[in-house]
């Protein structure tokens, strides 16, 4: 217990640092004009969120987040940007009305999030918190035991995604 107490300040510093990086990079994703730069900032955001997962002791999620999101999904994002014609002369005119609508809806979302989190610190956990639930070994035992059926169903989900991607992306040879 004493070692755990000693660890608290370090984790707190890490939390503030990672939150700062995540929010800064998240803002840069929106602000930067070049879409490729946006994606690079998004990768940094993903890395800092993976750091958050580590602080929450969800080590499997952290690893998956880096391998799948920062590695693979970002490649998809890059390809999407490459598929679109993003020359500056083709840049669509953004009307003032659209900008105001975007700011308004984003503000409403912020209001909802703040409202839902207000008073959350007073909530009491229904069950005693097990901090080791996110470790790979424990997660695997739960996944292949209690949650066996959803795991097998997820393969059907992946199969459907695969078939869908081939159906849309591959045109049939002309007969």
């Amino acid at each position: 217990m004493s070692t755990l107490l000693l660890n608290i300040p370090v984790t707190q510093y890490m939390f503030y640092f990672l939150s700062f990086v995540a929010i800064l990079c998240g803002m840069m994703v929106v602000i930067s004009k070049n879409p490729i730069h946006s994606i690079l900032y998004l990768i940094l955001t993903f890395f800092s969120i993976a750091g958050h997962y580590l602080l929450l002791n969800a080590q499997f999620l952290a690893v998956v987040h880096i391998i799948v999101y920062a590695g693979a999904i970002m490649v998809l994002f890059l390809y999407v940007i490459m598929m679109m014609n993003l020359n500056e002369k083709d840049e669509p005119n953004k009307k003032v009305f659209l900008k105001i609508a975007a700011v308004g809806s984003a503000g409403l979302l912020l209001l909802t999030l703040v409202g839902s989190l207000k008073g959350a610190e007073k909530m009491v956990a229904a069950a005693p918190l097990n901090t080791n639930v996110g470790l790979i070994k424990n997660l695997g035992q739960t996944l292949f035991g209690e949650f066996l059926f959803p795991f097998e169903i997820s393969s059907i989900l992946l199969l459907a995604a695969m078939v869908g991607a081939i159906m849309i992306g591959k045109k049939d040879p002309v007969k």
Binding site: F60, V63, V64, I67, V68, G71, A72, I73, V75, L76, Y79, V80, M83, I136, K137, L139, G140, L143, F144, F151, S154, S155, L158, A161, M162, A165, I166, G169, K170
Partner: peptide, 19 residues
């Protein structure tokens, strides 16, 4: 894009093998 999305799907499959 097709190659990339198929890679992502098999990547997710391999992730399940880790635990």
């Amino acid at each position: 894009f097709l190659v990339a999305i198929l890679f992502v799907l098999f990547d997710v499959e391999v992730i399940f093998m880790y635990p």
